[in-house]
Every structure is written in structure tokens, then in C-alpha cells.
Amino acid sequence: MWLLCLGTLWWCAGAIVVKPALNAVNALNSLPPCTGPVSLLQEPVQDAFDKIYTKHLWGGDGVTRSRSGPGSNIGRATETLCSVIFEALLKASKEKEAAGMTEYELNFLDAPSGDFFWMPGCLSRIASRLPAGARLNYQGVDVSDVATGIAEGKRASAQASVPTVTIEPFKTLNLAEAGILGRTFPAKHFDVINCRDALQHNAMELVHAILGNFNLAGTWLVNDVDTAGANGKDIRAGQFRPIDITAPPFNNVPECLQAGPVRRRENEHFGIFKLPLTA
């Protein structure tokens, strides 16, 4: 006697052929996948970005060009971003002065800070234009130990060039780890967080987690808005897809939006957002 599950037997040219039962096939097709579009077995996030810096996968020699990729070279894009960061710091400054403060610290988180290639010049320009009672405290973080090592090697010279800015030691951390900013900086709330090009290199699950951490740690967010966004596409850590946090499923509305010079692939803009966002 033939025993068969999920099908019927046909006799064809002397061979037994199994034809699956239609309702059984439909039932199998309706089952959800066991993993999401990006497998949890992918390379750990820090390892992925350490490899990028170690093997120069984003180009750059760290001297004439940034090892964080062409978007971090000194040029129109970083100059535009620096101006937007300054505007966000002015918003934070006005809030403090409206609260009656005449001397105050502005806490600025650069997340990720990469190899700290263009930021020293930006900090110098910002410091020279801040209100008289404001003092800037800069904190750089990155998921890559290699990147923070490069950045830390530049910190002393950068600090000497901008003595009115406190440049804190760089820290390696995963921005997507639950509660990481509160645990790492328990006594600090960041007035402005700058996050350029981090979301576009992370899986969507991690993007949501990163924005959730920013909501808990800051007041204003400067973020790149890639209006050529492919929010429906998921990636592995270190890969690329443009992302737009003003589009679904985020639908966040910036206080202002500045067009950037990077049009190919990204159509990049820089926005200032009041936290918390829809993460």
C-alpha cells in the first residue's frame, strides 16, 4: 500500500510521479519566512565597518582624501553640511537664551564621526560665530574601532587649533544598540546630533533602532535626506541604499531642508529635525 502526504499518486511511463495537493501547496506558500529580508547571520556591524576602513573600501588615503568616503572629503557637500549644523546649533542656543541662560554649553554629537577628516575645519568656523555666552562641546562616535582610532590620533592637534571647543575622546559604539547613548553618556543630553550617511549603510531594522536612540538622547537632529530614497530596499551593514526619513514609513517633517551638491544616486539634502522623530 502506498502512503503519501500532501499529494496524490500518478502512474506515468512506469514511474511513480507525485503531484502535490493544491490546497497543501497554497498552505505552504502562505507561511511567513523564518527570517527577514536581511539575515541575522550577516557579518557583525562593527566587523563590517572595520573592514571598510582597514581595506580602504570607500577609498581615500586619510591625508588628501577621507577614508570615510568621497562624501567626507572637504568640498561643497561638507561645507553645506557645516552651515546646516551651525544653524541647528543656533536653534539650540536660542532655546537656552530664551530660558534665561547667558552662559551655557552646547553639546554636539557627531554620529558617526568617521575618520574626523573635515570636521576640525567646520568646528573652527562654528566656534568663531557662536553667541558670546556659548561654549561648544564636541563628541565623536563611530561603530568602527579603526575609524575612532584614526580620529583619536587627530584629536590633540585639532584641539590645539580650536581651543574654544572641547573635543572629547572619541568612542566606539554601535548606534543601534538599545539605550547605548544613555549608558555611554549618562550625564549628558545632546543639543544637536549630526548623522550623515549612517542610515544609508545600515539595515532597516537598525535604522529604526538608531533613530530611537537619537530620540532619547538629543533635541535637534541634522540628517541627510536622500530624496532618491529606496526605503523599501533592505541591505546588509556597510552596503548602500539611499534613504529618506521624510518618506514612508517615517514621514518626518524637517524644520528646514537644504539642497546638497550630491545629486547622482542620492539627490542628497540636509535637514534639521526636532526630536523626537517617528522612528
Score class of each variant (00 low, 15 high):
residue 84 V to H: 02
residue 97 E to F: 02
residue 113 S to K: 00
residue 27 A to G: 13
residue 96 K to F: 02
residue 124 S to G: 11
residue 54 T to D: 14
residue 21 A to N: 09
residue 55 K to V: 02
residue 42 Q to N: 15
residue 94 K to G: 01
residue 30 S to R: 10
residue 93 S to A: 14
residue 154 K to W: 09
residue 130 L to K: 04
residue 126 I to T: 02
residue 121 G to H: 08
residue 112 P to Q: 05
residue 130 L to P: 02
residue 106 L to R: 03
residue 110 D to M: 03
residue 142 D to F: 04
residue 89 L to N: 00
residue 42 Q to D: 15
residue 26 N to M: 12
residue 145 D to Q: 15
residue 44 P to V: 12
residue 62 G to M: 04
residue 56 H to N: 14
residue 77 A to D: 15
residue 36 G to M: 05
residue 156 A to C: 03
residue 134 A to C: 06
residue 137 N to L: 08
residue 45 V to Y: 06
residue 81 L to T: 09
residue 41 L to M: 11
residue 58 W to S: 04
residue 144 S to V: 01
residue 61 D to G: 08
residue 65 R to P: 00
residue 58 W to G: 01
residue 89 L to Q: 01
residue 28 L to K: 11
residue 107 N to M: 07
residue 111 A to D: 03
residue 139 Q to V: 05
residue 129 R to E: 14
residue 82 C to D: 12
residue 151 A to F: 09
residue 54 T to G: 08
residue 64 T to H: 14
residue 155 R to S: 04
residue 67 R to T: 13
residue 24 A to N: 13
residue 116 F to P: 04
residue 23 N to W: 10
residue 107 N to P: 03
residue 67 R to K: 15
residue 23 N to K: 12
residue 76 R to K: 13
residue 73 N to K: 06
residue 138 Y to H: 07
residue 127 A to T: 08
residue 114 G to A: 09
residue 120 P to N: 09
residue 60 G to L: 05
residue 33 P to G: 07
residue 69 G to C: 09
residue 71 G to F: 10
residue 81 L to Y: 06
residue 93 S to I: 04
residue 121 G to R: 03
residue 24 A to H: 12
residue 82 C to Y: 07
residue 37 P to T: 10
residue 153 G to P: 10
residue 75 G to K: 04
residue 29 N to C: 12
residue 57 L to P: 10
residue 112 P to C: 04
residue 146 V to A: 13
residue 79 E to K: 13
residue 113 S to C: 15
residue 80 T to M: 14
residue 72 S to M: 11
residue 46 Q to D: 15
residue 109 L to Q: 00
residue 123 L to G: 00
residue 22 L to S: 12
residue 64 T to E: 12
residue 100 G to Q: 05
residue 84 V to P: 02
residue 95 E to L: 08
residue 129 R to V: 02
residue 103 E to F: 10
residue 79 E to I: 09
residue 142 D to K: 04
residue 131 P to Q: 05
residue 118 W to Y: 12
residue 39 S to K: 09
residue 90 L to P: 01
residue 28 L to F: 13
residue 99 A to R: 07
residue 79 E to V: 11
residue 51 K to F: 06
residue 128 S to C: 10
residue 64 T to P: 03
residue 31 L to Q: 14
residue 43 E to I: 15
residue 62 G to I: 06
residue 141 V to P: 00
residue 126 I to G: 00
residue 109 L to G: 01
residue 65 R to V: 03
residue 53 Y to K: 08
residue 136 L to W: 00
residue 134 A to T: 00
residue 58 W to V: 03
residue 70 P to Q: 09
residue 35 T to H: 12
residue 128 S to F: 07
residue 32 P to I: 05
residue 24 A to L: 07
residue 141 V to W: 00
residue 83 S to G: 15
residue 41 L to K: 11
residue 102 T to Q: 11
residue 21 A to G: 08
residue 27 A to H: 13
residue 96 K to V: 02
residue 145 D to A: 14
residue 80 T to V: 14
residue 78 T to Q: 15
residue 25 V to G: 02
residue 131 P to F: 07
residue 38 V to K: 10
residue 127 A to L: 08
residue 95 E to S: 09
residue 79 E to Q: 15
residue 82 C to P: 01
residue 140 G to H: 01
residue 148 T to Y: 00
residue 36 G to D: 08
residue 44 P to G: 12
residue 80 T to I: 13
residue 101 M to K: 12
residue 55 K to C: 08
residue 53 Y to M: 10
residue 84 V to C: 06
residue 75 G to W: 01
residue 134 A to F: 02
residue 107 N to I: 01
